[in-house]
Design a protein around this nucleic acid. Structure first.
Lengths: 181, 181
DNA sequence: TATTGTTATACTCTATAACTATA
DNA sequence: TATAGTTATAGAGTATAACAATA
């Protein structure tokens, strides 16, 4: 079954809210109602790869969205255009299999990008049911700028990672979602 | 603004669909309609940390969901219970800030967990507007089992990572979404 | 019989506005 | 005036079922 991981948003910091310090009282009394939580302990969640991967992905997507807005491209649309650009003639079915999308959800996206003259459908060379997808000249141009933006924003979104750490991170993440690799 | 990254699902493999090999014809003719795509080139996307982090997170969540179904806990509910368990008396506002959730979206979740007798609200020691959240005995018991399941499934979902690689991965991911750290 | 692309539709998750009661 | 919790609601994202055309 298809993907998921909706859009994010500026992403709220894991920063604990204004502490709400427990008043140093003479007698705290019994722990009846309990004490206020000063600092939130997230140690267990932080030990889970799934939790950390999700938070990291959302952080980067939060930077991705506003910067790609200038091209009118959402994350999935960027991925679709990129795959078409690097694989002229790719079919909708191949896009779905590669990006883990449901065919019905790709239809509208393709229509929209086609209406914006970023891509076009052509006859498939050996399957009349399918259609080969190709970028238009404008699509190529837009994608080129969008890709440059994507590469730059990733660096900005992960300023504390060294070049070597980025390479390591990419390798480890691929080992998770790629059966082979 | 709040989080995101909806549920996933078994996650479809990045495996390219049945190749659809181009028939070795005598005359391929002009590249008019183009050739069929045999293997999908995903090299550009695979160079993006955001893309890889998202795919990896979805892969793990795809394993998380069915295994946590026995406890009736979705990913976010598991995170909420875990934080309450490790932070007795935490407020809804603190949960929202920590997990990047919108307050309105947490209300129903708290209600549901409370109705299932997994947690309870108590008076907040020094703010009558707020409520301290606490696990019930049953909640503690359920959480204990759920956490053990979570730790185990992560290993199963990332079988190709060595213990050292897991530690490295956690550290790098945290450097992305934690401003400090 | 299986597959590509499609329509229609339902479900889940997330976001925004506005209200109350307290601070 | 600001904040905690709440309600109602809108919106985006994702899911399944069923169909026509072609393999």
């Amino acid at each position: 079954m298809p993907q998921t991981m909706t859009e994010p948003s500026p992403v709220r910091h894991p920063t604990p809210p204004p502490p709400m310090l427990p008043q140093p009282e003479a007698d705290p009394g019994p722990v009846a109602a309990g004490l206020a939580v000063e600092r939130v302990d997230t140690s267990f969640l932080e030990a889970l790869i799934g939790y950390n991967a999700r938070r990291a992905a959302l952080t980067i997507i939060a930077t991705f969205i506003p910067r790609m807005a200038q091209f009118g491209l959402r994350p999935v649309e960027f991925s679709v255009l990129t795959l078409i650009g690097h694989n002229p003639g790719i079919t909708a079915r191949q896009l779905c299999a590669t990006l883990d999308l449901q065919p019905p959800n790709l239809v509208g996206m393709i229509k929209g990008l086609e209406k914006r003259s970023l891509l076009e459908k052509r006859d498939h060379p050996n399957d009349r049911r399918a259609q080969g997808l190709h970028l238009t000249a404008e699509g190529e141009s837009q994608l080129e700028q969008a890709q440059a933006t994507a590469l730059a924003l990733e660096i900005d979104a992960t300023p504390r990672l060294t070049p070597l750490e980025r390479v390591t991170l990419l390798r480890l993440l691929r080992k998770i979602y790629q059966p082979d690799a």
